[in-house]
Write a protein that binds this DNA or RNA. Structure first.
Ligand SMILES: [Mn+2]
Ligand SMILES: [Mn+2]
Ligand SMILES: [Zn+2]
Ligand SMILES: [Zn+2]
Lengths: 151, 151
DNA sequence: GTCAAGTTTAGAATAATTTTAATTTAAATG
DNA sequence: CATTTAAATTAAAATTATTCTAAACTTGAC
């Protein structure tokens, strides 16, 4: 229904977004299917985002993109494996995905479940033990949990 | 079936563990019921532990303590609220509880799901942004994710 | 002992996520 | 283009972790 040719045609008229997204998928070795294109547009056009599968699914509905929740989950995991998304663990009940791939950390608002970025250069860890024998550090996550100044 | 009087009687014969645990529960304003005593013993006698509800439930079975999984969940949350346990978020699918209440951080072994402590004094954060307006920092979690030196 | 409040539990319910298996689509091939 | 094949999508069922419900016990006063 929506072919790569269509995408190229549209891209010609409004060059930036589609070709950017197309390249992103191609570069990741993922077929630019209709639903992946739509989800990628929602994810990557419009700044850094932190979202759950349900949130992205709701976004899609709101944009009149019909995608199953299973596909949203599949897509988020594929994008994650392809290095287009980060997975952030702040809530032990649901997964958040982060479109900001730069080195950074997070404020987590316990009350609301909101996440905001702390740019990498605003955090410095000056002391850290060596990784355990035979292990390599794959990532260091700093989560600053905050709440309103009462309670 | 198991009264405070029983507990005191047993405590007299083998003074340390029971009275220690009893005090812990009393201090937290929690009734020392049979199941809470047993779970507290499993949790707090025998060094620092990181465990899930399922793990504690299995521990209880192995020790011939019959407790429902619902009670294990209830107890973990009560202990957490009472400040006897920490909840650690490293896996977005399950909750871990930590009996080590001192200021410390963690290595997380992605492959195996294991957690090990990094003593508080082995981590120093020398740069950190101020908390957002009207917010107070409730905790800073540093998780060092590690994996075998290949892949 | 009596009683009220707190606790336990089996089982049902919920929420997030994954799996299954049938159907559709994308890209490669001729 | 038409054909073919592998990959992707999806509705629906299944799974996993966790919470809720409501009835049956305990606990700690009095
Ligand atoms: Mn889940
Ligand atoms: Mn869950
Ligand atoms: Zn982020
Ligand atoms: Zn710990």
């Amino acid at each position: 229904m929506y072919t790569a040719r269509d995408a190229r045609q549209i891209a010609r008229q409004d060059a930036r977004p589609y070709s950017h997204i197309l390249d992103k998928l191609r570069g990741a070795g993922l077929r630019p299917t209709r639903q992946r294109m739509a989800l990628a547009k929602l994810l990557f056009e419009g700044g850094d985002r932190h979202l759950t599968a349900e949130m992205l699914h709701a976004d899609a509905q709101a944009a009149n993109v019909r995608v199953s929740l299973a596909t949203v989950y599949n897509t988020l995991h594929q994008f994650h494996r392809a290095g287009l998304l980060r997975e952030i663990v702040v809530d032990s009940q649901r997964s958040y995905f982060d479109t900001n791939m730069s080195d950074h950390h997070h404020f987590y608002f316990d009350r609301t479940g909101d996440l905001t970025d702390i740019p990498g250069d605003q955090v410095a860890i000056s002391v850290l033990p060596p990784a355990p024998e035979g292990m390599a550090v794959s990532r260091i996550d700093v989560v600053v949990r905050v709440r309103p100044q009462d309670d």
